[in-house]
Amino acid sequence: MATLFSQIARGEVPCYKVAENSQFLAFLDIRPNAKGHTLCIPKKEVDKIFDLEEEIYRELMLFARKVGIGLEKTVDCKRVGMAVVGLEVPHVHVHLIPLNKMSDMDFSNNYQMSEEEFQKLADDICENVVL
Protein backbone atom coordinates (compact mmCIF):
# COMPACT_ATOMS: atom_id res chain seq x y z
CA MET A 1 0.00 0.00 0.00
CA ALA A 2 1.29 3.44 -0.94
CA THR A 3 2.36 5.79 1.82
CA LEU A 4 0.57 9.06 2.48
CA PHE A 5 3.55 10.88 0.95
CA SER A 6 3.37 8.78 -2.23
CA GLN A 7 -0.31 9.68 -2.49
CA ILE A 8 0.58 13.37 -2.03
CA ALA A 9 3.32 13.11 -4.69
CA ARG A 10 0.80 11.61 -7.15
CA GLY A 11 -1.74 14.35 -6.41
CA GLU A 12 -4.23 11.95 -4.81
CA VAL A 13 -4.05 13.79 -1.48
CA PRO A 14 -3.85 17.60 -1.43
CA CYS A 15 -0.92 19.49 0.05
CA TYR A 16 0.42 23.00 0.39
CA LYS A 17 3.15 22.66 -2.25
CA VAL A 18 6.16 24.97 -2.10
CA ALA A 19 8.48 23.39 -4.71
CA GLU A 20 8.57 20.48 -7.12
CA ASN A 21 10.70 19.00 -9.85
CA SER A 22 10.62 15.65 -11.62
CA GLN A 23 12.14 13.75 -8.67
CA PHE A 24 11.22 15.68 -5.51
CA LEU A 25 8.38 17.54 -3.83
CA ALA A 26 8.37 20.05 -0.96
CA PHE A 27 5.21 20.90 0.94
CA LEU A 28 4.19 22.41 4.26
CA ASP A 29 3.83 20.03 7.19
CA ILE A 30 0.17 20.15 8.30
CA ARG A 31 1.24 19.65 11.94
CA PRO A 32 4.16 22.08 11.96
CA ASN A 33 6.65 22.59 14.77
CA ALA A 34 6.90 26.23 13.69
CA LYS A 35 5.47 28.48 10.99
CA GLY A 36 6.92 27.35 7.66
CA HIS A 37 7.83 23.77 8.68
CA THR A 38 8.35 22.12 5.30
CA LEU A 39 8.87 18.51 4.21
CA CYS A 40 11.03 17.53 1.23
CA ILE A 41 10.42 14.07 -0.19
CA PRO A 42 11.60 11.99 -3.11
CA LYS A 43 8.66 11.08 -5.33
CA LYS A 44 9.96 7.52 -5.45
CA GLU A 45 8.84 5.72 -2.31
CA VAL A 46 11.78 4.61 -0.17
CA ASP A 47 11.38 3.99 3.56
CA LYS A 48 14.81 4.92 4.99
CA ILE A 49 17.08 7.75 3.94
CA PHE A 50 20.22 5.60 3.84
CA ASP A 51 18.44 3.17 1.51
CA LEU A 52 18.31 5.88 -1.17
CA GLU A 53 20.70 5.47 -4.06
CA GLU A 54 23.71 7.69 -3.39
CA GLU A 55 22.97 10.06 -6.29
CA ILE A 56 19.32 10.46 -5.25
CA TYR A 57 20.46 11.16 -1.68
CA ARG A 58 22.76 13.93 -2.91
CA GLU A 59 20.08 15.39 -5.16
CA LEU A 60 17.53 15.34 -2.30
CA MET A 61 19.95 17.28 -0.10
CA LEU A 62 20.53 19.84 -2.89
CA PHE A 63 16.77 20.16 -3.40
CA ALA A 64 16.25 20.62 0.36
CA ARG A 65 19.01 23.26 0.40
CA LYS A 66 17.25 25.27 -2.32
CA VAL A 67 13.92 24.99 -0.51
CA GLY A 68 15.59 25.94 2.78
CA ILE A 69 17.09 29.08 1.23
CA GLY A 70 13.66 30.08 -0.09
CA LEU A 71 12.10 29.32 3.27
CA GLU A 72 14.65 31.49 5.09
CA LYS A 73 13.85 34.38 2.70
CA THR A 74 10.14 34.02 3.47
CA VAL A 75 9.80 33.27 7.18
CA ASP A 76 11.30 35.48 9.85
CA CYS A 77 13.76 33.18 11.64
CA LYS A 78 17.34 32.98 12.88
CA ARG A 79 18.02 29.95 10.71
CA VAL A 80 16.40 26.91 9.12
CA GLY A 81 17.04 23.63 10.90
CA MET A 82 17.05 20.25 9.19
CA ALA A 83 16.04 16.88 10.60
CA VAL A 84 15.50 13.41 9.24
CA VAL A 85 13.50 11.28 11.65
CA GLY A 86 11.30 9.05 9.54
CA LEU A 87 9.27 7.29 12.18
CA GLU A 88 5.87 8.81 11.46
CA VAL A 89 5.59 8.01 7.73
CA PRO A 90 7.63 5.17 6.14
CA HIS A 91 8.77 7.37 3.23
CA VAL A 92 12.00 9.39 3.23
CA HIS A 93 11.38 12.99 4.25
CA VAL A 94 13.57 15.87 5.29
CA HIS A 95 12.11 18.35 7.77
CA LEU A 96 13.05 22.00 7.22
CA ILE A 97 12.04 24.00 10.27
CA PRO A 98 12.43 27.77 10.73
CA LEU A 99 14.16 28.24 14.08
CA ASN A 100 14.20 31.09 16.54
CA LYS A 101 14.82 28.93 19.61
CA MET A 102 15.91 25.33 20.23
CA SER A 103 12.40 24.28 21.24
CA ASP A 104 11.23 24.93 17.65
CA MET A 105 12.83 21.54 16.84
CA ASP A 106 10.61 19.81 19.41
CA PHE A 107 8.31 17.54 17.42
CA SER A 108 5.66 17.71 20.13
CA ASN A 109 5.06 21.35 19.10
CA ASN A 110 2.00 22.02 17.02
CA TYR A 111 1.90 25.48 15.48
CA GLN A 112 -1.69 26.34 14.53
CA MET A 113 -2.61 27.90 11.17
CA SER A 114 -5.80 28.27 9.16
CA GLU A 115 -6.13 26.82 5.65
CA GLU A 116 -5.85 30.35 4.25
CA GLU A 117 -2.66 30.97 6.23
CA PHE A 118 -1.18 27.67 5.02
CA GLN A 119 -1.97 28.48 1.38
CA LYS A 120 -0.63 32.05 1.56
CA LEU A 121 2.57 30.84 3.22
CA ALA A 122 3.02 28.07 0.65
CA ASP A 123 2.56 30.57 -2.18
CA ASP A 124 5.02 33.00 -0.57
CA ILE A 125 7.69 30.34 -0.07
CA CYS A 126 7.17 29.06 -3.62
CA GLU A 127 7.98 32.55 -4.95
CA ASN A 128 11.33 32.46 -3.12
CA VAL A 129 12.48 28.96 -4.10
CA VAL A 130 14.83 28.88 -7.09
CA LEU A 131 15.24 25.35 -8.44
Rank of each mutant, 00 (worst) to 15 (best):
E20M: 11
A64L: 09
I8N: 02
S6K: 08
E116Q: 14
V18L: 11
I8A: 01
G81I: 07
S108C: 01
Y16E: 01
Y16V: 12
Q112T: 01
S6W: 02
G68L: 10
N100R: 12
V85W: 02
K44P: 08
V46L: 05
M102K: 01
I49Y: 00
F63G: 08
Y111D: 06
I97K: 05
E88W: 06
C40G: 10
E12T: 10
E20V: 11
Q7P: 06
H95R: 01
M113S: 07
L87Q: 13
V46K: 02
K44R: 14
I49M: 07
A122W: 04
R10V: 04
D76V: 11
M105K: 06
S22Y: 09
L131R: 06
V80M: 13
Q112C: 02
H37P: 07
L71D: 10
F27W: 03
P14K: 04
V80L: 12
P32W: 06
C15V: 09
C40H: 11
V84S: 13
D123I: 02
P14N: 00
A9E: 13
Y111A: 01
E127P: 02
D123C: 03
R58A: 15
L62P: 05
V18S: 07
I69Y: 00
I125W: 05
I8E: 04
D104E: 10
M105F: 09
I69R: 11
I8G: 03
E12I: 10
D51K: 13
E53S: 08
F50S: 01
V92T: 10
L87D: 14
P42S: 09
P90A: 07
L131W: 04
Q7R: 14
V130N: 15
Q119Y: 07
K66R: 15
L25W: 11
K101R: 12
K48F: 00
V89S: 08
M105R: 10
Q119E: 15
S114W: 01
T38W: 09
V13Y: 00
P14L: 04
V94H: 07
P98M: 11
D47G: 03
F5S: 05
L52G: 08
K73A: 15
F50C: 02
D47K: 10
V80D: 14
A9G: 13
N110E: 12
D29I: 05
M113P: 09
K35W: 02
S6H: 05
K66E: 13
F63R: 03
I69E: 15
S114Q: 04
D106L: 05
G68N: 07
K66F: 00
K48T: 00
H93D: 08
C40V: 15
G68R: 00
P98T: 11
Y57Q: 03
D76T: 11
